[in-house]
Nucleic acid binder design. Structure first.
Lengths: 153, 153
DNA sequence: TTAAAACCTCAAGTTAACTTAAGGTCAACA
DNA sequence: TGTTGACCTTAAGTTAACTTGAGGTTTTAA
């Protein structure tokens, strides 16, 4: 049995192990901890140790980010998970529900935007008086409080 | 006839006018200019003047941003517009086509993500050995080069 | 037991996309 | 003709989400 397998079974994960398994850097885990998104305890030598469910947490954080949710919002939502016990299926389900709705909204927004792009940006009405694209009340109002997609490469 | 109407007709827009009409700040227009996204010439008193099509350009920039396209990418795409003449319907159409495809991709990505969130984050398989969420090759691979949505409030 | 690998903290750096500030010039209108 | 509002430039500040570096300690494995 390797050390890592042992660690896994003992449910007592090192930061390096969590980093490798979750696909984020050690520095990111440190960072998430300072932001209150994940938690750890320390061993005798002051090194971080994690419960296995941190992996799910990180996965959820990443998924939520990919949906366009900020770390701050994610933190808020993760805070609704139980503090004392390990989250159950039901707990994670509730999170999923919250973000589902947001995601639906964003998809709808993008679809409206696509129509707009198709219908308006490519349209022939280059006159400033007539083209709705020139009217920010009509056009940008939607975008103002909408979503922004970014590449994270 | 107001001064602004006059300006419009003379096709010789001030930065303040463009800012108001396009819904961005004057500093943003300055910024876009330094980034090569829009252009202006100067009057005798060294003040910026714009052609009316700058309004469409800014609108297009905003729309593209809302689709998750970075300013750098937008710049690349805008560079395909003709330099010498005012862009026509056809020119803008071509841009629209390029971004349509990207937008479609992103929407599809989000939809996959939603399924994933629904099926996986909320699922019961909290075991690290079995749940695909713990396997970054299977799960995070998609996200790695995917999109990130942010609020821009 | 000892050297390398992994870990620690804290401060500073990074990128995108802007915004704000300071200090000065120009233009519009009463 | 003055004064207020619009502009100008340049530099520095801002926010999110991390990353990098320096200098030092702990663990692991041969």
């Amino acid at each position: 049995m390797t050390v890592q397998q042992k660690k896994l079974i003992e449910a007592n994960l090192t930061v390096g192990f969590v980093a490798k398994r979750s696909g984020v850097k050690v520095s990111t885990l440190h960072f998430y901890e300072t932001k209150g998104l994940i938690r750890s305890w320390r061993n005798n030598g002051n090194q971080r140790r994690y419960k296995p469910d941190v992996l799910r947490r990180v996965a959820v954080i990443k998924a939520a980010q990919a949906m366009g949710i900020t770390l701050e919002e994610i933190k808020q939502t993760l805070a609704t998970l139980p503090d004392e016990r390990t989250p159950t299926k039901k707990d994670w389900s509730a999170l999923s529900k919250q973000w589902q709705a947001q995601l639906d909204e964003r998809i709808a927004f993008m679809q409206r935007l696509r129509e707009r792009v198709d219908g308006c940006i490519g349209c022939g009405c280059l006159s400033m008086d007539k083209c709705p694209i020139y009217n920010k009340d009509d056009y940008l109002g939607d975008i103002q409080n909408g979503a922004v997609l970014l590449n994270n490469n």
